[in-house]
Design a protein around this nucleic acid. Structure first.
Lengths: 224, 224
DNA sequence: ATTATAATTTTGATTGCTCAAAATCACTTG
DNA sequence: CAAGTGATTTTGAGCAATCAAAATTATAAT
């Protein structure tokens, strides 16, 4: 039987959670999963045990959860749909990049393979969505890029914005209004630990200062 | 709170059921509703009582159910989405008219008003979907047409196919392959009660004979 | 008017998903 | 290493939607 929207959302959240793991960690903790899905911790535990039962995840009590290869395949399919839909809504439907997330969030669970294939074809088999997130291909593999955040990239060197890792509409509008969308070129002029901020030189040599937390969400590639 | 997909499906089925009522009937019987939704009769009774509780329908035990004006408004919104999506999938996405129903069936419950508005605009505020079914406008009103079926239209008179009232993929493919899609011109040459069939003259004066049951699903407008 | 038939409603139960709150476990920190 | 803190799991419950099967009602037929 095919997975419910709920199951798809769990798998997706675990998938994304795994990519956010730092160091030698291999398991996504329950608390993180629960808050990512906006549900109570106990609910996550219960569901994850069921997912483990159906072979989609590996569950280690008190440690966390990880996708099996079957689970990863399904999660990649969901993410593929989500990101193709986002790009489609922007590219074809002319929607703003800050207003497509919720629609994609719903549609990812219901569009047929046939329609997704049409969309993929129409967009020319794209590798990245409007936020720069990689789109898994039909086999579930995604294009990898070596990106740095504005907190780690070289100073006074032109870099190209490649990815914005936050879907919040207000944040995306801020990024857009300051010409910091993927594809645009900027330079980091100064980082200040004390004031927890980063000064940038953007379009038309415009200067701006943003917080470190916001800066960490902007990923760039070094070759401008 | 907004209605669930299930509630939307009930309202839609009641709405469509009401249009199929003949004579002085005012209520959609439970059995018809249940079979339209593919659920057990008892389930329909339970749900309809809940819908009545929330003011979306009027329920008369043992007689049937009818939409209130609030229910009708919601049902029209769902139908509007469904039909706009079908037309969009055919017109913009290049899908076949026999393969869009299932996708629309799912998407109708999840697309945002914003996206529907974009689709409506992109399609030029259309009044009819690919099957000739009228699309309710944003206010829920639908364009009315005086149509006759192939069982009642005048003989040996050019008529234009306007609507096909069956979503079955095999039937739609048959219609298409015989050039009987909405917009095409045909003539009814003969009706035979005994053989339960209708003989048509179609494109390039091609003759064909179809059963009365199929003929009743083809609606035409008299002025060719 | 009684009886058979068909439609409808009621009953009792199940599944999927969720929560709050209590219980348990793991990990510092003194 | 004992104690406390924070994360996790367990428990008991509820809601929405569903079914099968029994009970009931309406309708038509004899």
């Amino acid at each position: 039987m095919l997975p419910s929207s709920t199951v798809e959302n769990y798998l997706k959240a675990i998938y994304v959670g795994e990519t956010h793991l730092v160091g030698g960690q291999k398991l996504v903790p329950m608390g993180q999963l629960a808050s990512a899905l906006g549900i109570a911790p106990g609910t996550a535990t219960t569901m994850v045990k069921a997912l483990a039962e159906s072979g989609l995840v590996t569950y280690e009590p008190y440690n966390g959860v990880r996708l099996t290869s079957a689970g990863e395949k399904l999660a990649a399919r969901v993410l593929r749909r989500h990101r193709l839909i986002e790009l489609f809504l922007v590219q074809v439907m002319g929607m703003n990049w800050d207003e497509v997330h919720e629609d994609a969030e719903q549609m990812e669970h219901v569009v047929s393979d046939r329609l997704i294939e049409r969309i993929d074809e129409m967009l020319g088999r794209p590798e990245f969505d409007p936020h720069g997130d990689p789109i898994p291909n039909a086999e579930g593999q995604l294009a990898e890029r070596a990106l740095e955040s504005l907190l780690t990239c070289p100073l006074n060197t032109p870099v190209t914005v490649a990815r914005v890792t936050d879907q919040d509409a207000a944040f995306l509008r801020f990024i857009e209004s300051h010409h910091l969308k993927p594809g645009q070129t900027i330079e980091v002029e100064e980082r200040d630990e004390v004031s927890d901020s980063v000064r940038l030189k953007g379009k038309d040599d415009q200067r701006m200062t943003i917080g470190a937390r916001a800066a960490s969400k902007l990923l760039v590639s070094s070759r401008a």
